[in-house]
């Protein structure tokens, strides 16, 4: 248990913060959970690797808090901070593509991990879709970093999201098909990623064996 994913991710913080996070995981009532949530969001917006895994830590802290005193201070602060960032997303994207991509990765990861009564949080469904729709706009599709992010999120949470709102998933995939088919200026890598995600959803969020071989084993041969 010494090398749990939490511990591994926590390594990227300074020592004092590491202590704070570890305490938050063990005894959430004894720390300032608003501060903890802000630390996690701040780090997620800076660190792409962390943003992919931060949901797990958040889930663990939220669970620990609920178990300890039936509280939801951490979750509340986390979500409200996330909402703040969501409102400012267009400015973030203009300022720093990397931060924008980190934000989308993070919010999707939170959606993925942080459940309420074992269900995804309804409040996040439309914001997550809004982010993904933004990544599917023409100006974002010409940007490989954003396509990569979009496709990764859909691989992770696409199936779940579709259950929450299939209508919006359809809208998103209209954009993706149009992008793949009609848009000028896409790199071949971007087209490859789009084609793969189109096949992935068409196969019921699974890649068929042959499709998998096509996309993934070429290089090894």
């Amino acid at each position: 248990m010494e090398n749990s994913p939490e511990d591994y991710r926590i390594q990227s913080f300074d020592l004092q913060t590491q202590m704070l996070l570890k305490t938050a995981l063990k005894d959430p009532g004894s720390v300032n959970l608003e501060k903890v949530s802000n630390i996690i969001v701040d780090q997620s917006l800076k660190d792409q690797v962390f943003s992919k895994e931060a949901g797990r830590i958040c889930y663990t802290i939220a669970q620990a808090e609920a178990k300890q005193n039936n509280g939801s201070v951490f979750r509340r602060n986390l979500l409200n901070r996330l909402q703040q960032e969501f409102k400012e997303r267009e400015g973030t994207r203009a300022r720093s593509l990397q931060e924008w991509v980190c934000f989308v990765t993070f919010i999707c990861n939170i959606y993925d991990y942080l459940k309420v009564n074992n269900m995804p949080m309804v409040a996040l469904v439309h914001p997550v879709y809004d982010c993904l729709m933004r990544l599917a706009q023409p100006d974002a599709l010409t940007n490989e970093e954003e396509v990569d992010c979009l496709v990764l999120q859909l691989h992770r949470i696409g199936e779940q999201l579709e259950k929450s709102s299939s209508q919006r998933m359809d809208e998103l995939f209209y954009l993706l098909r149009d992008g793949f088919l009609l848009q000028e200026g896409l790199t071949s890598m971007a087209r490859l990623l789009l084609l793969e995600i189109l096949e992935f959803r068409a196969g019921g969020w699974v890649l068929s064996g042959t499709a998998h071989r096509y996309y993934y084993s070429e290089i090894a041969d």
């Binding site: 979750r75 909402q83 309420v116 009564n117």
Partner: peptide
Amino acid sequence: DWGSQVEDDEMRRD
């Protein structure tokens, strides 16, 4: 805010 929305949802389901 989202925090309250989620809490409301949680309570509604309960």
